[in-house]
Computed example of a mutant assay.
Amino acid sequence: MGYAHYTLSDGREAGYGVEAICDKEGCDTEIDRGLGYLCGENPDGWRSEEEYGCGNYYCGSHQPDHECPSQGCGKFDPTGNLSCHRPAGHDGEHRDPDGSGFTETEEGEE
């Protein structure tokens, strides 16, 4: 799959080459349907059930606050560089974007 232009399972066109409007109702901010505006890691049709995100595309103002029904875990690995890419409240270990497991450390623990 190329990322400039492709078709989602719901028939919408997506990719960084596709001009669009933010998916937040009432927002008319112009965006593209590239991965940078996507809620989650993969668009619908390519997303596993273990991934967070709703698969919609939001502007910078609405990306962090759009009442996503499948929010990310939000926990980080011990280095603080990689976040868990599983849904909030998941069971089992945390996983980074490559699928490798990690154990969260408490703040201040080394």
Rank of each mutant, 00 (worst) to 15 (best):
Phe102Thr: 02
Thr79Pro: 08
Glu106Tyr: 07
Gly89His: 06
Asp32Pro: 11
Gly53Thr: 08
Cys68Trp: 03
Asp32Trp: 04
Glu13Cys: 02
Phe76Cys: 10
His90Tyr: 06
Arg47Tyr: 11
Thr7Asp: 03
Cys22Lys: 01
Lys75Tyr: 05
Asp23Met: 02
Thr7Trp: 07
Gly55Glu: 13
Arg12Leu: 02
Gly26Ala: 14
Asp98Tyr: 05
Tyr52Thr: 11
Gly11Tyr: 09
Ser48Trp: 07
Ser61Ile: 14
His94Arg: 06
Arg33Trp: 07
Glu41Thr: 06
Asp98Val: 04
Asp96Asn: 13
Asn81Asp: 12
Gly60Cys: 15
Glu49Pro: 05
Asn56Phe: 14
Tyr57Gln: 00
Gly99Leu: 00
Ser61Phe: 15
Pro64Val: 00
Glu104Asp: 04
Pro97Lys: 06
Tyr52Trp: 15
Glu106Phe: 03
His85Ser: 05
Asn81Met: 07
Glu30Gln: 06
His90Asp: 14
Asp91Arg: 13
Cys39Ser: 10
Asp98Pro: 01
Gly99Tyr: 01
Ile21Glu: 07
Glu109His: 09
Glu49Ala: 15
Leu38Tyr: 03
Glu49Gln: 13
Cys73Lys: 02
Cys22His: 02
Leu35Phe: 15
Glu67Cys: 09
Gly80Val: 12
Asp91Glu: 11
Glu107Gly: 00
Gly60Phe: 13
Tyr52Asn: 14
Gly36Arg: 02
Tyr16Ile: 02
Asp32Ser: 10
Arg86Val: 08
Ala14Tyr: 00
Glu110Phe: 04
Asp96Lys: 00
Arg47Pro: 09
His66Val: 15
Glu19Val: 14
Asn56Ile: 09
Glu106Ala: 14
Tyr16Gln: 03
Asp28Arg: 13
Ile21Cys: 12
Pro78Met: 02
Tyr57His: 04
Ile31Thr: 05
Glu104Thr: 09
Ala14Glu: 00
Ala14Phe: 01
Tyr52Ile: 10
Gly15Lys: 02
Cys84Tyr: 00
Asp65Leu: 03
Pro87Tyr: 13
Ser70Val: 12
Ser61Arg: 11
Asp65Gly: 03
Asp28Ala: 09
Arg33Leu: 04
Glu67Ser: 13
Gly92Pro: 08
Ala20Arg: 03
Glu50Pro: 05
Glu106Val: 12
Ser70Tyr: 13
Gly74Ala: 11
Gly2Met: 09
Tyr52Lys: 15
Tyr6Glu: 07
Cys27Thr: 08
